[in-house]
Nucleic acid binder design. Structure first.
Lengths: 312, 312
DNA sequence: GCATTGCGTAAGCTGCGCTGATGCTCGACG
DNA sequence: CGTCGAGCATCAGCGCAGCTTACGCAATGC
């Protein structure tokens, strides 16, 4: 019988690409990971990875097995969810990762409602950029997290994660009120205020400008949208601001709706949809988001719409 | 993350009932199993079993977890099946468990066909009573096996096993030619020839007589149907004989068809339907059985009709 | 050219998980 | 009612799986 811990390493290798990265994610040494993967190859009876330059690549058999490892881990996740569902009430820690704007706007109401209905729940919120959420979910530092899905930045869905839509927002171009502009293309030489390099906001801003035919002239880096809007109001440049953060723009800022949309999803490890605490959080947050933006879709029956996907 | 080896122990405990039996099935000591199950309880964070008299019983949480353990193990089985499917041709051992009559009648043709089409396959047949097949599949001493499903002997389906129908046979009452009888009820005081105690044949014969209103007067025990028919021909008594074994009854034997039917299934561990060697065996055996008895049902697309069942 | 990154192997150590021994409780049986 | 055996839990002890550290090698970047 294949060892599940080793399958998990293989799965993470297929996600992260290098043995060193897998080792870091598991707080192991690279040597340990290498040894365990060798042992997995012995169990499998055929090579699963091969050296490619400095690193390694998965063989077709390795990719197949990594895909099925997701199914096994999802089944394990379902088992723990079912186990938690046998408890009398909801209790224990729920680690939540969300981007700052959501923490400010959506989460408070949801946390209040959850704390009222399930006082034994221990709700732990971590502000973090959406790009960091998948890794944190994989490494079990989070139980649920908020992800963004911009149509301008294609993300291939992670087969180990699952989720439900939360928001579908308009993205605005925030410009100083005296600046005439009806779209991104009108402002090829204007200074931009974008997120810190590496954040999703940064990537999106650059990508939106690229598709408009220019690279943005970046003047300021700021991740908090209140700050961003203040800078725009001060005539320091233009910026992209999602609907959720553009609630009450300061004086001197004009918001131009763009065709680009920002979709937010609540994500969790595949198989965790049936976990009562996760399900409770999902409904609470969707309730809190009702009315804000467009609802992202119908509320799913608990743990049903999130069916287990099959391996390749 | 729950330990899968421990989940397997829990699953086997729910199947076998006692820790001692689980230990025997795994060739462990009872002490080891007890310790591992305690560790699983620590992982689960709640009691999974409780002492009941001399033995133990699963708590509701334990039963839930045992049910999901089946899903996890099935996903693992699918992974190994997918891994085997990446190999170039079919090879390796296939351990087959079948009842004697099938070994004599159905298997030879299937083995010849498989050996011809896949010479690298190592086909290992073990004659065994159907009642022993589920345990042998669980303990990985077999890869596929033949099961019986008499309508008079209810068997609850094993959630860890899967399978496809193979045969649907008439069961005959074999009587000496000079004995007038049109059914079991006509012969309350006649001596019977039945299988050895503990075999399914024995159970079925006793049960058929019970429903006819009497306990059979057992004179002989014989498991080979050729022997049984010879004894009947010698006027030693009557017996139940399935269609497959009643091909050419010896002189002096009359076969009275009964309403009872015997259904044969090809069984394997859940998740193994996609294993290429298992799938090849299934098709080969169904081909060999075509025409014999009634076909048990439509041939399923490989590994599809045998979908994964969900936990409770 | 050298430094860096990534992987594999060898050696050593630690703790998990097994066995064996012991004691307990419960049920069967005379 | 006392005895025996079955079944389970706990403890001590030990071996090995699996980790870390150290080292060597190949490929890449400057």
């Amino acid at each position: 019988m294949l060892d599940v811990r080793r399958l998990r390493l293989l799965r993470d290798l297929s996600r992260l690409g290098t043995i060193a990265a897998v080792a870091q994610a598991h707080t192991y040494t690279a040597s340990a990971v290498s040894q365990q993967l060798s042992a997995l190859e012995r169990e499998a009876g055929r090579p699963l990875l091969e050296r490619a330059g400095r690193g390694v690549t998965l063989t077709p058999a390795g990719r197949t097995l990594a895909g099925h490892a997701d199914n096994v881990l999802a089944a394990l996740e379902e088992a723990t969810a079912a186990l938690a569902a046998t408890a009398a009430g909801l209790s224990g820690p729920v680690r939540i990762g969300a981007y700052p704007t959501a923490v400010r706007t959506l989460l408070p109401a949801a946390l209040v409602a959850l704390g009222r209905d399930h006082p034994a729940l221990e709700l732990l919120v971590s502000e973090m950029d959406p790009v960091a959420v998948p890794a944190a979910l994989h490494e079990r530092r989070l139980d649920v997290g908020l992800l963004h899905d911009y149509d301008v930045v294609p993300v291939r869905p992670d087969p180990a994660l699952d989720g439900v839509p939360l928001l579908d927002e308009t993205v605005y171009l925030a410009v100083p009120a005296d600046l005439p502009a009806s779209g991104v293309g009108d402002l090829p030489d204007v200074p931009w205020i974008v997120g810190s390099p590496g954040t999703l906001c940064h990537t999106v801003a650059v990508q939106v400008c690229r598709t408009a035919g220019f690279g943005p002239r970046v003047r300021h880096h700021a991740d908090d949208f209140a700050t961003v809007l203040a800078l725009v109001g001060a005539g320091q440049g233009v910026a992209l601001v999602p609907e959720l953060a553009a609630d009450r723009p300061p004086a001197g800022v004009r918001l131009v709706p763009l065709p680009t949309r920002r979709r937010t999803r609540i994500a969790y490890r595949r198989g965790a949809a049936g976990h009562p605490a996760v399900a409770a959080f999902v409904t609470a947050l969707r309730d809190a988001a009702a009315g804000r933006g467009r609802p992202g879709g119908p509320a799913p029956a608990r743990g049903v719409s999130a069916g287990r996907r099959r391996g390749r």
